[in-house]
Simulated scan of single mutants.
Amino acid sequence: MDDRHDILCIGSVLWDVIGRTDRAMRVGSDVPGRIARVPGGVAMNIAMALARLGLRPELLTALGRDPAGEELLEAARRRGIGTEHVYLSDDLPTDAYMAVEGANGLIAAIADAHSLEAAGDKILRPLADGRLGNAAAPYRGTVALDGNLTFELLGEIAASPLFAGADLRVAPASPGKAERLLPLLDHPRATLYVNLEEAGLLAHRSFDSSADAARALVAQGAHRVLVTHGGRGCSLACGDLLLTETPPEVLVARVTGAGDTFMAAHIAAEIRGAEPPAALTRALEAAALYVSGDTPL
């Protein structure tokens, strides 16, 4: 068993190409701004945030044996993120993500995570072959899992003895992939991190508040759920417990990766022993700092 890390981050690791402008945009807008290429993907964003918070994350993902993949491996290592168990493919290219953000938020995005999907359960081999665990002695640490994996693989994870002892922290990659998490909705060891739209997709209904959404998902079988709603109230529900808190008000400079930062900060606070109200507060403060642009990438 590998004890050189604090948490496994399983899912997408890719290059984010993000165009940002301080002007409001609509379909067809052509405006000046800045374009950046930075490490991204849900699993990578969570890992980077965890590393900034002083934890030691380890990646389980798929990268191509290409220059883009080699650059990502080096970028992860520089940030204190473990890459020993990354699956490297000779025939699949490294994935990518492209987004445009304006003063009025995310305008559009395309996620190309086809290589991660094609790699399938190959990325989980270290959990089965003894390097990180096996069916007889499953991994018992914290696992951050993202919805860029296929519906079929997430279903296998939900029923797998390899994850029977893990503290699962699960997030969809986007509203478009939220329903991939349905196999994990009633998992007895899973905490779901979703926004209001994603909660509605999982529950097959719409909600007016994060509190209503969190209560509904728990009633539907979720063990524990955190529902964010931008700058409005964020709610945590688990059994009879319901907490709601409003994030600090900040000037929004970026949005891509904010939910991943929130999730990472909440996990880090709980790993260090914070009680539910304090962990929720720390997560909201970290996300606010990130969207304000004051957190380095």
Rank of each mutant, 00 (worst) to 15 (best):
residue 195 N to Q: 02
residue 283 A to R: 00
residue 44 M to F: 12
residue 188 P to E: 07
residue 95 D to K: 10
residue 251 L to R: 10
residue 197 E to S: 12
residue 110 I to K: 00
residue 104 N to Q: 00
residue 72 L to N: 03
residue 129 D to R: 10
residue 71 E to M: 07
residue 247 P to I: 03
residue 186 D to E: 14
residue 266 H to N: 06
residue 238 C to A: 15
residue 88 L to R: 14
residue 136 A to F: 04
residue 52 R to K: 11
residue 203 A to F: 11
residue 234 C to E: 03
residue 37 R to P: 00
residue 189 R to G: 02
residue 120 G to K: 03
residue 119 A to C: 11
residue 160 S to T: 03
residue 110 I to H: 02
residue 56 R to V: 03
residue 138 P to G: 06
residue 273 G to M: 08
residue 128 A to E: 06
residue 112 D to G: 09
residue 243 L to A: 08
residue 42 V to S: 11
residue 12 S to W: 00
residue 36 A to T: 15
residue 35 I to N: 08
residue 134 N to H: 12
residue 257 G to I: 00
residue 18 I to L: 00
residue 86 V to R: 10
residue 287 A to P: 13
residue 293 G to M: 13
residue 219 A to R: 15
residue 150 T to M: 01
residue 243 L to I: 02
residue 271 I to C: 01
residue 99 A to C: 10
residue 291 V to S: 09
residue 142 T to F: 06
residue 160 S to A: 04
residue 224 R to I: 02
residue 176 G to I: 02
residue 110 I to R: 04
residue 199 A to D: 06
residue 7 I to A: 01
residue 267 I to H: 10
residue 113 A to E: 00
residue 115 S to E: 00
residue 191 T to M: 05
residue 225 V to Y: 05
residue 182 L to V: 13
residue 233 G to A: 15
residue 68 A to K: 10
residue 33 G to K: 09
residue 64 G to Q: 01
residue 11 G to A: 06
residue 105 G to D: 11
residue 143 V to D: 04
residue 161 P to C: 09
residue 250 V to T: 14
residue 174 S to E: 05
residue 50 L to Q: 02
residue 147 G to T: 03
residue 10 I to P: 13
residue 155 G to D: 11
residue 242 L to E: 01
residue 290 Y to W: 14
residue 124 L to Q: 08
residue 282 R to Y: 05
residue 27 V to F: 11
residue 106 L to V: 13
residue 243 L to P: 05
residue 23 R to V: 10
residue 238 C to Y: 06
residue 168 L to H: 13
residue 133 G to T: 13
residue 122 K to P: 08
residue 246 T to A: 14
residue 285 E to S: 08
residue 21 T to I: 12
residue 265 A to S: 07
residue 99 A to W: 12
residue 189 R to C: 08
residue 142 T to W: 02
residue 212 D to W: 01
residue 133 G to Q: 14
residue 154 L to K: 10
residue 268 A to F: 10
residue 248 P to C: 11
residue 292 S to K: 04
residue 256 T to M: 04
residue 59 L to C: 04
residue 183 P to V: 11
residue 47 A to H: 04
residue 57 P to M: 11
residue 161 P to A: 08
residue 102 G to H: 11
residue 203 A to S: 09
residue 262 F to T: 13
residue 4 R to Q: 13
residue 167 D to K: 13
residue 205 R to H: 08
residue 68 A to N: 10
residue 235 S to Y: 02
residue 240 D to T: 06
residue 129 D to L: 05
residue 249 E to I: 15
residue 48 M to R: 15
residue 27 V to H: 07
residue 295 T to Q: 03
residue 297 L to D: 05
residue 257 G to H: 00
residue 203 A to Q: 11
residue 237 A to E: 06
residue 222 A to F: 07
residue 121 D to R: 14
residue 272 R to L: 04
residue 129 D to N: 14
residue 48 M to P: 03
residue 196 L to V: 05
residue 109 A to Q: 07
residue 172 P to E: 07
residue 29 S to A: 15
residue 110 I to E: 01
residue 283 A to C: 01
residue 247 P to C: 02
residue 20 R to A: 09
residue 204 H to F: 08
residue 23 R to A: 13
residue 229 H to N: 15
